[in-house]
Design a protein around this nucleic acid. Sequence first.
RNA 1: CGGGGCGUAGCGCAGCCUGGUAGCGCGUUUGCUUGGGGUGCAAAAGGUCAGGAGUUCAAAUCUCCUCGCCCCGACCA
Length: 577
Amino acid sequence: MVRWSQQLIPTLREAPAEAEIPSHQLMLRAGLIRKLSGGLYTFLPLGLRALHKVERIVREEMDRAGALEVLMPAMHPQEIWEQTGRFDVLKDVMFKIKDRQERNLVLGPTHEEIVTDLVAHEVQSYRQLPVNLYQIQTKFRDEIRPRFGLMRAKEFIMKDAYSFDMNLEGVEKSYQAMYRAYERIFKRAGLRTKVVEADTGAMGGSASHEFMVLADAGEDGIIECEACSYAANLERAEGVSRGERVFADAGQSTAVVATPNQRTMEDVSRFFKSPAVRLIKTLIYLADEKPVAALVPGDRDVNEIKLKRALKVVALVLADDATIAKVTHAPVGFAGPVGLTIPIIADEKLKGYRGAITGANQADAHLVNVDLARDAKIETWADISNANAGDGCPRCEKGNLVAKRGIEVGHVFKLGTKYSEALGAGYLDPEGQRKTAIMGCYGIGVTRTLQSVIEQSHDANGIVWPISIAPYQVEVLPINVAHAPTMEAALKIVAELEAAGFEVLFDDRDERPGVKFKDADLLGLPIRINVGEKGLAKGVLEIKLRHNGELRAVPPEQVLATVQACAEELRTGVAVL
RNA sequence: CGGGGCGUAGCGCAGCCUGGUAGCGCGUUUGCUUGGGGUGCAAAAGGUCAGGAGUUCAAAUCUCCUCGCCCCGACCA
């Protein structure tokens, strides 16, 4: 039996100042985690139990999907990262260390290289394929800004799986199997997720989907169609612009207008009393060190991921003031496409722009009546801007797009042969031909998933655990531990519940009832049983459900059956969520 | 990396401006009390005031540096 008094469950009446979002505050207040330092957390017993439950669900579903569990080192020789060229890409996020031989090692931020190396050595024949290896491991990332407790930490637990297939059909099958496994995992964990099309980022590869938990605290922007099923990460979302492209005075020749100190889009928009969409925003970037001008409509943000891809470059940064002055011959704030000698890439939403307003490439001046095709030399047209809420849906055309925030808890990729080729993961086919394996990779942020559950399932009083990952399913709460009949009845029901397979937390603390009730709500175990004198006098115990506050008074001999029924309902409820 | 805020008891905070005895609430310990939503009374423990340097007769308080934590940004030309 687990007695509260023998446990380490340091609940906090007030939230530590370091925590901003509800899930982070509650994890600290309920005694689930404690911070060692920024982005580094200790799991206390209660938090660890919940974490283990998430891991168990993940493991069961991965196994069910046919993936094989392995455990790879957290520490890797640097050379293996150099072999795929990813050392350069990821060196800023990798923790780099040396051993006593001065050998360069890194703490793994992910494991594509490691698993591919393994497969390169151990898989020789088509008979061994397909194979899907997964692990649940601590990953290390030197995040620019650790945030929100477990949401973005320097050290976090991730489940990652890697599939190796012989052909595209096989890849598709592996991908679908993981996609379905993820749906099951998050559903079982009591999470409502939204699947969105995603960018593949530093991974490389083609298709990818992210599993998002919708939440205000989410770090990712999500765009979805209100009419059809289209949903995508803002990083990749396409929007069909419904803005005008031909404005008043179109056709007239350009003219310079003095605009002293009108630098921002807001300033200029107000100055000309024109909507931002009429303005053309000109940003000077250094793309692989070379200056390039990027043009987007004034009411939109440049999407650097799209821009990077369109330009086919690795490094993309905004140009410094000196460079801007050099290429535009004007101080920052007055750049425009007309007369620029550097390459210009324009957002396709600008196609056909006439009568637009741009910077004039001279101090305190803008250019009006700009006809982009007539007046500027556009080298490339591409989608390089963010979709906006209110844009048309790129799929169904009818629907409007809406913007939301999400927490990325899972991500599935089709990787292709980038890693298998670099590290020699291949096989001999039935004809004896040497072939390269095609990979997919599939990640779940396990610690992040745990916190996301709380972010999505809590109320003013505390956590509301889904029964599937609650640290314990039942809390038995004797109102007065000094009252012998109370304790007798409480212990009896604890024993019955445990014999029936329930995990029970017994709050045996000699505390006032109010304190114990508050703590029970804070901890958020799904089923609570109050045992007190008043109830006993009437021959009943009380069963209280955390998620809806429902209270049932039942005779002791019916408690077990009632709890079983409640638990069953909660389990189904989780599945239905 | 840029900007902002904060660092005083386990947690939440006041004191700092205007230098002179380190405080409040919660929590903790002990005793009594109470016993169905953070009980009441009493006593007590607990602080290198983040660290260092400086100014001063005297520094939590003023100055400088360092470290840590939190927030925003790292694109809007």
